[in-house]
């Protein structure tokens, strides 16, 4: 029941948590751009410095942040191995066997790529650690507003997203309840071959589906009863406002991008 905590959100109050979600999304995009603009380790060091600042001011435990990297460890290792063995540099290779060859440049380049990936993944997960799904959708809706001019249903999309997010914990509670009830009646979800396992899910899925439809119906009626009419002249309960925090974050991002570009021009590429 309460075993499932949805998403990654880490509920503490901090500077980073209080930054406007729109700015956090923009910050992430800007940061990714900076990572790809960086052509040498000094640029990445600047990015890493900013990341450390973000983590330090978010009050999310460092171990938890590093756990995000563990999730993509295989991808990172794969990239590293591929680059170490297939990057063709100049001069003599350190090691050669058939088509596999290790060059000095290959080692450097794959180290560079690994750093890049780690920074990328870590900052992206900082966004979900410090922003609730609801305010994330709010921010997205606000950022996508320009699409309204081409008649794209931004508001409906945001509503669907936030309702879906809202329903996840409810349905997961419900799943757990139904699962317990069927287990109490001797249902077995662990053993047996795959076909049997899928069949064993039916006593959970059917009641769950029925309850999901019932909930959707009830919610729709409740919204209509309160005169919900789509996004015609709707005001927001939580109005997003930029504050000094957002200005600080924006300045940090601007400084980072400028710094990275300067380092790129002055010091050249990685090799």
């Amino acid at each position: 029941m309460k075993e499932v905590s949805f998403g990654q959100y880490y509920p503490v109050s901090s500077f980073v948590h209080k930054v406007d979600p729109r700015l956090k999304i923009l910050f992430l995009i800007g940061y990714i751009t900076a990572i790809f603009l960086a052509k040498n380790f000094y640029g990445l060091a600047a990015c890493a410095f900013v990341l450390i600042l973000v983590v330090a001011f978010s009050r999310v435990p460092v171990l938890k942040v590093l756990r995000a990297v563990r999730g993509v460890m295989i991808l990172i290792l794969f990239t590293a191995v591929l680059n170490i063995f297939f990057y063709r540099g100049e001069g003599d290779p350190y090691f050669q066997w058939k088509i596999f060859a290790v060059y000095r440049e290959g080692l450097l380049f794959s180290a560079f790529l690994v750093c890049r990936l780690i920074l990328l993944v870590t900052l992206s997960s900082m966004l979900t650690y410090t922003t609730t799904p609801v305010s994330l959708t709010d921010g997205l809706e606000s950022l996508l507003t320009p699409l309204k001019w081409v008649r794209f249903p931004v508001h409906a999309l945001a509503l669907i997203m936030s309702l879906a997010l809202r329903m996840i914990p409810i349905l997961s509670d419900e799943t757990d309840r139904i699962k317990s009830a069927q287990m109490a009646r001797g249902a077995n979800f662990e053993s047996g071959n795959p076909v049997k396992k899928i069949k064993a899910m039916i006593p959970i899925l059917i009641p769950l589906l029925i309850s999901a439809f019932r909930r959707a119906d009830e919610l729709g009626e409740a919204m209509e009863a309160r005169c919900y009419m789509g996004d015609k002249k709707r005001t927001k309960y939580k109005k997003l406002r930029f504050t000094w925090r957002d200005l600080l974050a924006f300045l940090l991002l601007a400084a980072l991008i400028t710094g990275v570009v300067l380092l790129r021009i002055c010091l050249g590429g990685v090799i």
């Binding site: 419900e174 309840r177 139904i178 317990s180 009830a181 069927q182 109490a184 009646r185 039916i202 006593p203 959970i204 059917i206 009641p207 309850s211």
Partner: peptide
Amino acid sequence: GMVFQYPEAQLFA
């Protein structure tokens, strides 16, 4: 035997 709250939610067949 265990009958949960609102046990009708477990009907499926």
